[in-house]
Design a binder for these strands. Structure first.
Length: 599
DNA sequence: GTTAGGG
DNA sequence: CCCTAAC
């Protein structure tokens, strides 16, 4: 057995403009399984889902002890959002499956060959909860492949970094591209002692624009009850404004807040403030922020655990793809929704694929919203077969955007996610499935080329990379040769439906289409559906005579369409009122009014 | 394995 | 015609 480690892909956000570290640094977090031997294996989608389910379950447990520490630096909304979820088990809780691991800080420009690895330091002493503002990581940690210390909410902690990051780093050798520390104990209550924020800063009219970074940080702390070391003024102002107004719709350029409202030119913000409640806002914490379970006690907030639970849910905002177009904070609403909804139907792989494409497109757009990165939304092998996929870099795409750094314009790769799955153990099964599916569809097609293709596909199955395999696979599967439906076939179909009923496609196929080997039951069903559409379309166009704009397809004789409609109506009627009659009379009278099309 | 329904 | 969830 292993330990699941939650990670996510994130892009490092360097808020410190003075830092010499390139902004293009990338942090990749990945859900991995820690095997017994300490090796890490990328988690499967199922494991990701399991992790999420556990999180949700835990959230609902009154005796919840496992707290997710969500850290993540929210960036200005025009930038990529960085979120990182650290799962942290409480002290003494051994059943936790999760540990927080930050896999690696990946310099995408330099370490293109590197794969995110991780080393979990499960025995990390709890008193090593160290704040390590990301801004400073760069300077301290890049020597050792950018190891990142666990981020803890430590007041005035910047100075502690040097003292604490080193011991953490020395705990494990700076293995290749790796290094991480897991804060595996509960955070000390001292973390938040003597940290009463200065709420006075939030009194009266707040001119965020005129505040210094330090003051903004203080205001941030007063607002969210969390320490931040983000030095990005804009980010801070936006965050604070959001927190104070409990709104994510903060006009840019105006950060004066009075009475919990944004005082702007348009004066549009009328959202009441719930100051402490904003703690539950899906504001991603900075990377250097970790909220201890007991933290809220120090804040005197009555919402403590609940809010923690909400925070715990913060990463899950990515699960709500519906919010993809919304500012990430809006996911709060979703997270706060009563969990009454049933488990949503699993999105189809096609849907996943499209989402992936969308995500890729979005990455090239101006606004990046933290998409739902969690595994099950990226499980499709198909989604992997994107043209931009760089097989050498797991989870990294070559989608880039321009970012100007100190006058230089650099190509910053968006890291949408890590590899969706570890190499599928059942990949051959998968391949066989595809193979058999294809064979099934073409079993009667006696197409030599088709067989060869399938043979090739089997060979592809040897490939370890499901990505490339699927790409090849998809490219090589030949679409079934299109055969237009003849009138004869249509008549057979109609007659078959009349005889056996719509839905008995296999029956109709077996009896009426025995000699039409290329027509499958699915084809029959599809054709019937089209016939229905045509027939009802005919019905409507009859009233409003209009030339059908369908010169392409062979027109179905109107009498046939009429019959189709009769059959359909009769069928629907039979389903409701005439079941006895249906049983009594095998062959509907409709059938007889016109000769069957049978040959 | 078959069907339904979205694509 | 393809794909896949649901049965």
């Amino acid at each position: 057995m292993g330990t699941l480690v939650d990670t996510e892909i994130n892009r490092d956000y360097n808020a410190d403009a003075s830092s010499s570290q390139p902004v293009a640094d990338t942090v990749v977090y990945q859900l991995v399984r820690v095997e017994d031997d300490g090796s890490l294996v990328p988690a499967t989608v199922d494991e990701v889902m399991e992790a999420e389910n556990l999180l949700e379950d835990d959230k609902n447990e009154a005796s919840q002890v496992e707290i997710t520490i969500h850290t993540g630096r929210q960036m200005p909304d025009e930038d990529i959002s960085l979120k990182k979820s650290d799962l942290e088990s409480s002290e003494g809780v051994s059943h936790s499956k999760f540990n927080a691991v930050e896999l690696s800080k990946l310099n995408s420009k330099v370490q293109e060959e590197s794969l995110p690895l991780a080393q979990a330091l499960n025995n990390s002493p709890k008193n090593e909860d160290v704040a390590s503002p990301l801004n400073n990581h760069c300077d301290h940690l890049n020597v050792c492949n950018e190891k990142l210390a666990p981020k803890t909410d430590y007041a005035q902690s910047t100075s502690l970094i040097d003292n604490h990051a080193a011991p953490l780093g020395s705990g494990e050798t700076c293995s290749e591209h790796v290094n991480e520390a897991v804060t595996n104990g509960s955070l000390d209550s001292e973390t938040c002692s003597n940290l009463m924020p200065d709420f006075s800063i939030l009194k009266g009219e707040i001119h965020l624009d005129s505040l210094t970074i330090r003051e903004l940080q203080e205001a941030f702390r007063a607002t969210f009850g969390r320490q931040t070391s983000v030095k990005d003024k804009l980010w801070l102002k936006r965050r604070i404004a959001m927190g104070l107004t409990n709104s994510c719709d903060i006009p840019s350029g105006s950060f004066t807040i009075k009475d919990n409202k944004i005082v702007s030119k348009h004066d549009t913000e009328e959202v009441p403030c719930r100051l402490q409640a904003s703690n539950s806002e899906a504001v991603p914490l900075s990377n250097d922020q970790v909220t201890a379970p007991i933290y809220d006690n120090c804040q005197g907030s009555p919402s403590s655990l609940a809010n923690q639970a909400e925070d715990q849910q913060v990463p899950s905002c990515k699960r709500n793809r519906e919010t993809i177009l919304e500012y990430d904070v809006k996911s709060e609403d979703i997270n706060e929704e009563p969990c009454a909804s049933k488990r949503v139907r699993k999105p189809t792989k096609r849907y996943i694929e499209e989402l992936s494409d969308f995500e890729a497109r979005e990455c090239t757009g101006k606004i990046f919203t933290p998409a739902r990165i969690s595994g099950h939304f990226h499980s499709s092998p198909k989604s992997i077969a994107r043209p931009t996929h760089d097989s050498g870099l797991q989870g990294k795409t070559s989608v880039t955007r321009q970012e100007s750094v100190g006058g230089f314009t650099v190509q910053v790769p968006y890291v949408c996610r890590v590899r969706r799955q570890r190499p599928r153990k059942s990949f051959m099964t998968f391949m066989n499935f595809v193979d058999s599916e294809s064979e099934k569809r073409d079993q009667e097609n006696f197409d030599i080329d088709e067989r060869d293709v399938q043979h090739d596909m089997a060979d592809i199955g040897e490939d370890n990379s499901d990505d490339s395999a699927y790409a090849k696979l998809k490219g090589s599967i030949k679409r079934k040769h299109h055969r237009a439906w003849t009138l004869c076939e249509v008549l057979k179909l109609v007659d078959g439906v009349a005889r056996y009923g719509a839905g008995k496609w296999s029956e109709i196929k077996r009896i009426a289409f025995a000699s039409y080997t290329y027509r499958t039951s699915v084809d029959l069903k599809d054709k019937w559906r089209n016939l229905l559409r045509a027939s009802f379309a005919l019905k409507t166009t009859e009233k409003a005579p209009k030339i059908s704009r369908k010169p392409s397809s062979l027109p179905i004789p109107i009498p046939i369409l009429m019959r189709v409609r009769e059959l359909a109506e009769m069928h629907s009627k039979a389903g409701i009122d005439f079941s006895p009659r249906k049983v009594a009379g095998e062959v509907p009278t409709v059938l007889k009014e016109k000769g069957t099309g049978f040959l």
